[in-house]
C-alpha cells in the first residue's frame, strides 16, 4: 500500500523531471528543425522551431557522400563496441583488485593511477610513443588505443562502487568456497554492479563515438578506415577554415549549405547513439533490481 505522503513526493519528482525533460528536449528539437530548414531561411531568420521554409538540402549534401559516410558508420560501430567492451572490462578488473583493502601496494597503485589524471605528456609525445614504438598509425588500433580505452576516473568510480555497494561478506564466502578471483569477479561483482557497468560503458561508448581527434592524428588522409566523426568533423572544419582564412577565394563555399549542414551533421552523428540508449537502460534497470541486495 502506498501512503499518501509518498504520493506527494512522487508528484514533486514528476514536476521536477518534467521541467528538466522539457529543458533537455527543446534544444534537441531545435537542432532537428534547423537541420531541415532551408539554407536561405536559416541565414535570414536564424534557427527556429517553426522555420518558414523546409528543405532537405543539408541531408542531400551529406547523402552525396554516402559511400564514405556509410563506411564511416561501420568503422565507428566496430571501434565503439570493441573499445567499450575491452575498456570497461579492464577498468573493472583493475578496480576490483584495488578494492581489496589489504592488497599489498594498493596505495601505490592508487597513487600511480591518480597521477595520470593530472599529468599527461601532451599530444606530441603520445604520438611519438604510439607511432614510433607501437606503429599503430593507419591501423584500427590508432582509433582504439590512444587516450580512450580506459581512464583513471572510471577505475576510481568502479573501485568506489565495489567497496561500498557490494557486501564484502559475499566475496569472502565465495573465497572460502574456493572460487578463483576471476570467477568471483565475473560471477558476483560483475552482475551485482551491472548498473555501474552500464554507466561507465555509456560514457566510454560516447567517447569513442564522438572521437575525431584520433582519426585526425593517427590516420593519413588516404586511409580507408576513417570513422564517421572524423569525416563529419572534416566537412565542418574545412568549411570553417575556408571561411576564416579567405584562402585566395579559389573555392566557393557558396554551394555548401553551411548553416544547416552543421546541424544535419550533428543529427547524423548523434541519432544512432540516442537510439542505443533504451538498450543500455534495459540493462541498467535489470542490474538495478539485482543490485539491491541485502547485507
Amino acid at each position: 500500500m502506498i501512503e499518501n505522503k509518498d504520493k506527494w513526493w512522487s508528484y514533486a519528482g514528476h514536476i521536477v523531471m518534467i521541467i528538466l525533460s522539457i529543458v533537455a528536449i527543446a534544444p534537441f528539437l531545435l537542432l532537428l528543425m534547423s537541420s531541415f530548414t532551408d539554407e536561405a531561411t536559416a541565414l535570414k531568420n536564424g534557427y527556429s522551431f517553426f522555420p518558414e521554409k523546409f528543405s532537405l538540402n543539408a541531408y542531400h549534401y551529406i547523402s552525396s557522400q554516402w559511400e564514405m559516410i556509410g563506411k564511416g558508420y561501420l568503422i565507428t560501430i566496430i571501434v565503439t563496441v570493441v573499445g567499450t567492451v575491452v575498456g570497461v572490462i579492464i577498468s573493472a578488473m583493475l578496480a576490483y583488485t584495488l578494492s581489496k583493502h589489504d592488497l599489498p601496494g594498493r596505495n601505490l597503485l592508487m597513487f600511480l593511477l591518480t597521477f595520470t589524471m593530472l599529468f599527461n605528456g601532451g599530444l606530441t609525445s603520445s604520438y611519438i610513443v604510439y607511432t614510433q614504438i607501437f606503429h599503430i598509425k593507419d591501423t584500427i588500433l590508432g582509433l582504439l588505443l590512444p587516450g580512450l580505452l580506459m581512464n583513471a576516473y572510471n577505475v576510481v568510480m568502479f573501485k568506489n562502487y565495489f567497496e561500498h555497494s557490494i557486501p564484502n561478506a559475499l566475496l569472502e564466502s565465495a573465497r572460502i568456497d574456493g572460487a578463483t578471483e576471476l570467477n568471483i569477479f565475473a560471477k558476483i561483482s560483475m552482475p551485482l554492479s551491472l548498473p555501474m557497468f552500464v554507466t561507465v560503458g555509456l560514457t566510454t561508448a560516447l567517447m569513442y563515438w564522438n572521437d575525431w581527434t584520433n582519426g585526425m592524428y593517427y590516420l593519413s588522409t588516404n586511409s580507408s578506415i576513417q570513422s564517421i566523426q572524423t569525416i563529419l568533423n572534416n566537412i565542418n572544419e574545412n568549411i570553417k577554415f575556408l571561411q576564416q582564412n579567405n584562402v585566395g577565394n579559389m573555392v566557393s563555399t557558396g554551394d555548401m549549405p553551411s548553416a544547416t549542414i552543421r546541424m544535419a551533421i550533428a543529427v547524423v552523428g548523434v541519432v544512432p547513439m540516442l537510439g542505443l540508449f533504451p538498450i543500455f537502460q534495459r540493462w541498467f534497470v535489470k542490474g538495478a533490481t539485482a543490485g539491491a541486495v541485502k547485507e
Binding site: F115, G121, G122
Partner: peptide
C-alpha cells in the same frame, strides 16, 4: 598511454 609519454 600515460607514463611513457610523460617523458615528453
Amino acid at each position: 598511454n600515460n607514463y611513457m609519454p610523460l617523458y615528453g
